[in-house]
Simulated scan of single mutants.
Amino acid sequence: MPTAPDPRPTVVTWAASADRLGEAVADRTHRLVVRTSVGGRDLRVRLSNAFGERPVTIGPVYVGTAAAGAEVGAGTNRPLTFDGAPSVTIPPGGAAHSDPLSGRFPARADLAVSLYVPDAAGTATGHVRAGQTSYLAKGDQAAGHGPGPYIEQTQSWLHLDAITVRAEPGTTAVVTLGDSITDGSASTDDTNRRWPDFLARRLLADPAGGSVRGVANAGISGNMLLADGSGESALHRLDRDVLSHAGVRTVVLLEGVNDTKADPTPSARSMTAALEEIAARVGAAGLRLAVGTIMPFHGWPAWSETAEAVRQEVNAYIRTAGTFDTVIDFDRTMRDPRDPLRLLAEFDCGDHLHPNDAGMRALAEAVDLGAL
């Protein structure tokens, strides 16, 4: 008698968008600490070599419960396989998924993913600004649970760009596509206070019990809608960093401030055309798109009247065009009502562009969970 299909969907529970990390270093184990969102079974990781010029071999790879510092909880560190093998070779521009790891993984789990890179050269792929301390050791130290060999620290995640689980039937996820604000640049390190982290807490605690439970953060500091630079532009990385993730129902887009303060500033029409293209591609994939208005940044050195005029025009389009499934008015949430060109002081980290922890919470609370 045939086995019934598993009704539990594969859903992304954590992600970090890939970029160039500089020169790769061989014979190192990277113990990467991450906080997941939705819980489930049969955990899998996705490893990326998106920006490598040559194949990279990774393995062994272990996953366990993160404890203090570089320590992994005793008895929790388990090996992953790739098509049954303890390592995998990923071609330039490619990615690899591990086999499922049996067992139940709770929601908002702190995990340590330990991966050994025996031979590496050229450009390394990873997420530049993690906002989370991870650890490095010489040689193959992936299987051990103790912190002893991990004498170096890093604020980047190497190669790891997504984690999925099999969640409860009907569960879906949201991807937050953005720049340094979504990446959490001015939030407190090692505390998971990026606004997508606060959103994950809200979704998991939602008494209405909506389907969206997973959160994948696709923010890259310095990112733009139109131009490559700090990461590929939102247009160029949409497929890899958003549409490729499993179980996604909705995309939340907060981009554009880096475009407006670029020199030269692009036209508002070029930016709204990019938003229209993203809406079309997200819709063609069967997903919903929520677009956030661009937040104020008067007081930042690159602010100008030209940049402000473009920001206002783009925001007016976002609010009135009817192009998107929903609009999140982050500008209205974050601006000072007495001086609408500036962030509210209680939400300003001090540079007049990036929200502090309180601002990050306010951004998450501005999201209508039902609209996701």
Rank of each mutant, 00 (worst) to 15 (best):
56 V>G: 04
56 V>C: 04
56 V>W: 05
59 G>D: 12
59 G>T: 08
59 G>N: 08
60 P>T: 11
60 P>W: 04
60 P>N: 10
60 P>K: 10
61 V>F: 03
62 Y>G: 00
63 V>Q: 10
63 V>K: 09
64 G>R: 06
64 G>K: 02
65 T>F: 01
65 T>Q: 14
66 A>F: 05
67 A>P: 01
68 A>K: 12
70 A>R: 06
71 E>T: 14
72 V>I: 15
74 A>M: 05
74 A>N: 03
74 A>C: 01
75 G>E: 07
75 G>Y: 08
75 G>F: 09
77 N>C: 15
77 N>A: 15
78 R>I: 02
78 R>K: 10
79 P>M: 03
79 P>V: 01
81 T>E: 02
81 T>S: 15
82 F>H: 09
82 F>Q: 12
83 D>M: 00
84 G>I: 01
85 A>Y: 00
85 A>W: 00
85 A>K: 10
85 A>T: 11
86 P>N: 04
86 P>F: 06
86 P>I: 08
86 P>M: 06
88 V>S: 07
88 V>Y: 05
89 T>E: 14
89 T>V: 12
91 P>D: 09
92 P>C: 08
92 P>D: 06
92 P>N: 11
92 P>M: 06
92 P>W: 09
93 G>H: 10
93 G>M: 07
95 A>L: 06
96 A>F: 08
96 A>V: 12
97 H>M: 14
98 S>A: 02
99 D>A: 10
99 D>L: 07
99 D>P: 07
99 D>W: 06
100 P>T: 13
100 P>K: 11
100 P>Y: 13
101 L>R: 14
101 L>S: 15
102 S>I: 00
103 G>C: 05
106 P>N: 05
